[in-house]
Design a protein around this nucleic acid. Structure first.
Length: 566
DNA sequence: GGGCGAACTTAGTATTGGAATG
DNA sequence: CATTCCAATACTAAGTTCGCCC
C-alpha cells in the first residue's frame, strides 16, 4: 500500500512550485522563441516574423480532420433490461442510451435533486414520445384503394404469460414471441412489399383480396390465427357496420311473423322444432348469445343459449307471486355471470320441464339443437338472419323506445344526457354488459357527494345574501342596490343549475356502478338513432360520442337526419 | 350434419395522458 | 406546481359465422 502512495506524494510535491496553469503556455512560448532566435536568426524566416495579415484576417490556409467523435452507442447485452414500475420495457438504442446516462449517476447526489430529475425525465420522455409518434406514423397506416387509412392493431403481441379470463385451463402458459418467420403478409400485387427486419424473412407474402387483413400469425396457446386489420374508422369497416344495422332493420320488418312462428312451434310434434323454438325465444327475449359448443379443457366453462345445461336453469312454478319463473344462472362470454329470474309462458315452462326430464345436471338442455342448425333455420326465415342479429335488433329497438319514453324536450342538456344514459343502460342490462365496480368507486362517489354539499352550502349562503339585497333594495331604492339584487339573483340561478348537474351526475354514476355502457354503444346500437336524437333535442354530438366514436360512426353522423327511425 | 379452420365481431380490463384540484 | 382522478385508449381474449371437407 505504501509503495503506491509514496510516488504519488512525490509527484505532487515536485509540481508544487510551478506557476499556475494559465501562465505556463506563455512561458514556454517565450523560451522557445529565445532558443530559436539564437540558432537560426540569419538563415530562416521565423514563423512569427512573417507578414501580418490584413486587418481581421486570421489565416490564409487551414487544414485538419474535424473532431473525433464519441463512439456510437453500443447496446447493453441481451438480458439486461430496463424496468419501469417493475415492468420490463423494450427501449430503442437512442432511448436506452439516455437511460444509461441516468443509470450511471444513480448513486450520485445529483439524482436526489428535484431539478436534475425533472429535467432528465422531461427530456427522456419527450424522446420516447417522439419515437412512438414516428412508429405510429410509419406502421400505423396503410394505403387501401388509393386512400391512406388507419390500421387497428399494427403491433404484434409481445411475449408473456397467457392470462385467460375466469377459470381458464391454460392460464400461465408461455405466449411465445412472434418472429417475422411466423408472419404472413397480405398486400396487393405490384405494391411495395414491406421489408422484414434485417436478417429475417416473412413466413409468406400473399395477395388475397377476398379478405381484409394485412398480416396474420398463429399464436401458440390455442393455435388461433391473429390478424392485423383496419381501424373501425376505415371505409371497409364502416360499410360492414352499416350493413349489420341494415340487416337488423330488416329483422324489424319480419320479427312479428318470426315470433308467431316460434310460438306455434312450441307445440310441435318434433322435439327438434320444440327445442329450436324455445331457444329462439330465449335469444329473442333475453338477448342470449348463440352459444357454440366448446372443446372441454381448452377453455373456461362458459355457455350461451344452445349450450345451456340443465344445471344452469331452475324451474319455479311459483316464485315471489309470479307463475312459471325460470331462474337462469350461468357464466357467459368472458366468464360474466348471467343471473335472471324470468316469468315465461306456460307452454315454454312445460317444454323446459320436458327437456330436463331424465337428464343429469351436466346434460345439454337443448340436446337436439346446435348453433349451425339454428342459424340454417334463421337463414330460411330471412336472408342474412343469424342468432346475433337478434341481439343487434333488440338492442337498437330498445334504445329507440327508451329514448322516446325518457327524453323530455323541456329538460336542459344535463337532464337529457341522463335520459340518454338511462336508455343506453337499459340496453346494457338487456345484453348483460357488466363490469367490475371501479376500484376507486366509493372514493370518487364520496368526492362527488362532497362537491354537492359544498354547492348546497353556497346556494344557502347566496339565498341569505339575496334576502339582504332585497331588504337593501327596498330601503334604499337606488339603482346600485337594484343592480346588486339582480346580480345576486343571477348568481343563485347559476348555482342551482350547477347543483342540479352534479346531482344528475351522481345519480348516473350510482346507477352505472356495475354496468358497462361502452360495449353496446360501440357494437349494438345503430349510431343513427343517437345522431337523430341529438339533432332532434339539440344535444351536441360530442356529448354522447367521443372522438374515436365519432370517427367510427362518421358514416352515421354523415347520413342520419333528425327523422331517422330504426 | 359434424368437425374444423379461417375470418371477422364483440368483450372486459389495464394503462395512459391530460384535465381538475388543492 | 405536484398530485389526484377519470375518460380515452390500448390490448388481446373470447365469442359468432361461414364455407369446406368428409
Amino acid at each position: 500500500m505504501l509503495k503506491h502512495v509514496l510516488p504519488l506524494a512525490a509527484w505532487a510535491s515536485s509540481h508544487a512550485h510551478l506557476p499556475p496553469a494559465s501562465l505556463r503556455g506563455f512561458l514556454t512560448f517565450n523560451a522557445m522563441r529565445l532558443h530559436a532566435a539564437g540558432r537560426n536568426a540569419k538563415t530562416a524566416k521565423i514563423r512569427w516574423e512573417e507578414e501580418q495579415h490584413a486587418n481581421g484576417v486570421k489565416w490564409q490556409q487551414l487544414e485538419h480532420r474535424g473532431p473525433y467523435f464519441a463512439p456510437p452507442y453500443e447496446r447493453l447485452p441481451r438480458g439486461v433490461c430496463f424496468y419501469y414500475n417493475g415492468k420490463p420495457m423494450k427501449l430503442s438504442p437512442a432511448t436506452e442510451e439516455i437511460a444509461t446516462f441516468y443509470a450511471k449517476m444513480l448513486d450520485h447526489d445529483y439524482t436526489r435533486k428535484a431539478i436534475f430529475k425533472k429535467n432528465f425525465f422531461c427530456d427522456w420522455t419527450e424522446k420516447l414520445k417522439k419515437e412512438a409518434e414516428r412508429i405510429q406514423e410509419e406502421y400505423g397506416y396503410c394505403i387501401i384503394d388509393g386512400h391512406r387509412e388507419k390500421i387497428g392493431n399494427f403491433k404484434t403481441e409481445p411475449p408473456g404469460l397467457f392470462r385467460g379470463r375466469g377459470d381458464h385451463p391454460k392460464m400461465g402458459m408461455v405466449k411465445k414471441r412472434i418472429m417475422p418467420e411466423d408472419v404472413i403478409i397480405n398486400c396487393s400485387k405490384g405494391s411495395k412489399i414491406p421489408k422484414p427486419p434485417p436478417g429475417h424473412k416473412w413466413k409468406e407474402v400473399r395477395s388475397d383480396n377476398s379478405v381484409t387483413w394485412l398480416a396474420s400469425w398463429t399464436e401458440n396457446i390455442n393455435g388461433a390465427i391473429k390478424y392485423i386489420m383496419l381501424n373501425p374508422s376505415s371505409k371497409l369497416k364502416g360499410e360492414k357496420d352499416w350493413q349489420k344495422y341494415e340487416i337488423a332493420r330488416c329483422l324489424k320488418g319480419v320479427v312479428g311473423k318470426i315470433r308467431a312462428q316460434y310460438r306455434a312451434d312450441w307445440k310441435s310434434k318434433e322435439m327438434k322444432k320444440r327445442q329450436r323454438s324455445v331457444a329462439l325465444y330465449f335469444i329473442d327475449k333475453l338477448a342470449l348469445r348463440a352459444g357454440n359448443e366448446k372443446e372441454e379443457g381448452e377453455t373456461a366453462d362458459t355457455v350461451g343459449c344452445c349450450s345451456l345445461r340443465v344445471e344452469h336453469l331452475r324451474l319455479h312454478p311459483r316464485m315471489d307471486g309470479k307463475e312459471n319463473v325460470v331462474e337462469f344462472d350461468f357464466l357467459g362470454k368472458d366468464c360474466i355471470r348471467y343471473y335472471n329470474q324470468v316469468p315465461v309462458e306456460k307452454q315454454v315452462f312445460k317444454n323446459l320441464q320436458l327437456f330436463m326430464e331424465n337428464k343429469g345436471p351436466g346434460d345439454d338442455l337443448f340436446d337436439r339443437l346446435s348453433t349451425s342448425t339454428l342459424n340454417k333455420h334463421l337463414q330460411d326465415l330471412m336472408e342474412g338472419l343469424t342468432a346475433k342479429v337478434f341481439r343487434t335488433y333488440n338492442a337498437s329497438i330498445t334504445l329507440q323506445e327508451q329514448l322516446d319514453a325518457l327524453t323530455n324536450e323541456d329538460d336542459n342538456v344535463a337532464a337529457k344526457l341522463l335520459s340518454y344514459n338511462r336508455a343506453n343502460r337499459a340496453v346494457a342490462i338487456l345484453c348483460n354488459h357488466q363490469r367490475a365496480t371501479p376500484k376507486t368507486f366509493e372514493k370518487s362517489m364520496q368526492n362527488l357527494q362532497a362537491k354537492i354539499n359544498v354547492k348546497r352550502d353556497q346556494l344557502c349562503d347566496a339565498k341569505l345574501e339575496l334576502k339582504r339585497a332585497k331588504a337593501d333594495c327596498k330601503s334604499k331604492r337606488d339603482l346600485k342596490s337594484k343592480a346588486t339584487l339582480e346580480k345576486k339573483q343571477k348568481h343563485i340561478e347559476k348555482l342551482e343549475e350547477q347543483l342540479e348537474k352534479l346531482v344528475l351526475q351522481a345519480t348516473d354514476k350510482e346507477e352505472n356502478k356495475q354496468i358497462a355502457l361502452g360495449t353496446s354503444k360501440l357494437n349494438y346500437l345503430d349510431p343513427r338513432i343517437s345522431v337523430a336524437w341529438c339533432k332532434r333535442f339539440c344535444v351536441p354530438i360530442e356529448k354522447i360520442f367521443n372522438k374515436t366514436q365519432r370517427e367510427k360512426f362518421a358514416w352515421a353522423i354523415d347520413m342520419a337526419d333528425e327523422d331517422f327511425v330504426f
